[in-house]
Amino acid sequence: EVHFESHGEEQAMRVVKMLKKRNLTVEVKVENNKWIITAK
């Protein structure tokens, strides 16, 4: 499981795309203006 924190939507979306290319399940949450990305 991979956790990634991002402060910007643009950066977060880039990471999500990259993770999805690896056929991982990606969950995105926004907490306290931080984008929290979890990949399994």
Rank of each mutant, 00 (worst) to 15 (best):
E1C: 13
E1T: 13
E1P: 10
V2K: 05
V2R: 06
V2Q: 07
H3I: 14
H3K: 12
H3Y: 14
H3P: 03
F4Q: 02
F4M: 05
F4L: 08
F4Y: 13
E5L: 11
E5Q: 07
E5C: 15
E5Y: 10
S6A: 15
S6E: 12
S6G: 09
S6M: 15
S6Q: 07
H7C: 15
G8W: 14
G8C: 15
G8M: 14
E9L: 14
E9G: 06
E9M: 12
E9C: 15
E9Q: 11
E10N: 07
E10P: 05
E10H: 09
E10L: 11
Q11Y: 09
Q11F: 10
Q11N: 08
Q11A: 12
A12H: 02
A12Q: 02
A12T: 05
A12F: 04
A12M: 10
M13Q: 07
M13R: 09
M13F: 05
M13V: 04
M13C: 14
M13S: 04
R14M: 11
R14Q: 09
R14A: 11
R14G: 04
V15T: 04
V15P: 00
V15I: 15
V16G: 01
V16C: 14
V16D: 01
K17A: 14
K17R: 11
K17D: 13
K17E: 14
M18D: 05
K20F: 11
K20S: 07
K20V: 10
K20L: 14
K20Q: 13
K21I: 10
K21T: 08
K21H: 07
K21P: 01
R22P: 03
R22G: 08
R22L: 15
R22E: 07
N23M: 08
N23G: 15
N23W: 14
N23K: 09
N23E: 04
N23P: 02
L24K: 03
L24M: 13
L24Q: 03
L24W: 14
L24G: 02
L24P: 04
T25A: 09
T25N: 10
V26Q: 00
V26P: 03
V26T: 02
V26K: 00
V26S: 00
E27R: 06
E27Q: 09
E27G: 03
E27F: 11
V28K: 00
V28I: 11
V28E: 00
V28S: 01
V28N: 00
K29C: 11
K29S: 07
K29W: 08
K29D: 02
K29P: 00
V30I: 12
V30W: 13
V30F: 15
V30T: 05
E31D: 08
E31G: 03
E31Y: 09
N32A: 07
N32G: 13
N32K: 08
N32L: 04
N32S: 05
K34E: 02
K34F: 08
K34N: 05
W35Y: 08
W35F: 07
I36T: 05
I36G: 00
I36Y: 08
I37M: 01
I37T: 01
I37Q: 00
T38L: 05
T38E: 03
T38G: 01
T38Y: 06
A39L: 09
A39T: 07
A39V: 15
A39Q: 02
A39K: 01
A39Y: 09
K40G: 05
K40L: 09
K40S: 12
K40W: 15
